[in-house]
Simulated assay, not measured.
Amino acid sequence: MTEEIIIAGFGGQGVLSMGKILAYSGIMHDQEVSWMPSYGPEMRGGTANVTVILSDDRISSPYLKVFDTAIILNQQSMDKFEKSVKPGGVLLYEPNGISQHPTRTDIHIYQIEGNKIATEMGNKKIFNMVIMGAFLKIKPIVELENVIEGLKKSLPERYHHLIPLNEEAITKGMNNVKTYLKEKQVL
């Protein structure tokens, strides 16, 4: 099994953290892992993306042009990465702020309203864990207990009291992901 993932959005959305947690989870699952972040000099508010590869075999290169899964959190990333999903692959996106929804018919497309769910839960910082839950529902490539361990490794100890809230956010994401159905055009 090899899963090649791009996670892309604005800085401050937890894009890099989500990738790091997936990478830690893969390591604990005894997989080979690559984590390659990319972000602009603006950081918060600028574009950010991370490529994560989880594999049962050695990874020859962390540099990819096409992906099994794209997790898209803003319009700029949709414009850039929708076409980079392999045919038959998965595109998961947060529709808030997306004006041009995906149009491909050769991939599986899912939506998760991460902003809305995180706001309802009272903490917008768990947005990325809602998205993580949606991804794990679609592609359960790592076990939830490994994700929780990944959270413990990536969060500073002073924030470990928030791990139960993050776990709840993952569950909410799993329970609220939806298949995106393009509207049928009337002729």
Rank of each mutant, 00 (worst) to 15 (best):
Lys182Thr: 07
Ser154Phe: 15
Glu145Phe: 14
Lys182Ala: 14
Glu143Asp: 11
Lys153Phe: 08
His160Ser: 07
Glu183Cys: 03
Asn175Cys: 06
Ile148Tyr: 11
Lys182Gly: 08
Lys152Gln: 12
His161Pro: 00
Tyr159Ser: 11
Lys139Phe: 00
Glu157Val: 11
Ala169Pro: 07
Gly150Met: 04
Leu181Phe: 07
Glu167Asp: 09
Thr171Cys: 06
Tyr159Ala: 11
Lys153Ile: 07
Thr179Asp: 01
Lys152Pro: 01
Lys152Arg: 15
Met174Pro: 01
Leu155Glu: 02
Leu165Glu: 08
Val147Arg: 01
Val177Leu: 04
Gln185Val: 10
Ala169Asp: 11
Val142Met: 07
Ile138Ser: 01
Leu155Met: 13
Lys153Thr: 03
Lys178Ser: 01
Gly150Asn: 05
Gly150Trp: 04
His161Lys: 12
Lys172Tyr: 13
Tyr180Phe: 14
Thr171Val: 14
Ile148Ala: 10
His160Pro: 10
Val186Arg: 11
Ile138Ala: 01
Glu149Asp: 09
Lys153Trp: 05
Gln185Thr: 11
Pro164Gln: 08
Leu181Lys: 13
Tyr180Pro: 04
Leu162Met: 14
Leu144Ser: 07
Pro140Arg: 00
Tyr180Met: 05
Ile138Met: 02
Gln185Ala: 05
Ser154Gly: 12
Ala169Arg: 08
Glu167Pro: 00
His160Trp: 13
Glu143Asn: 05
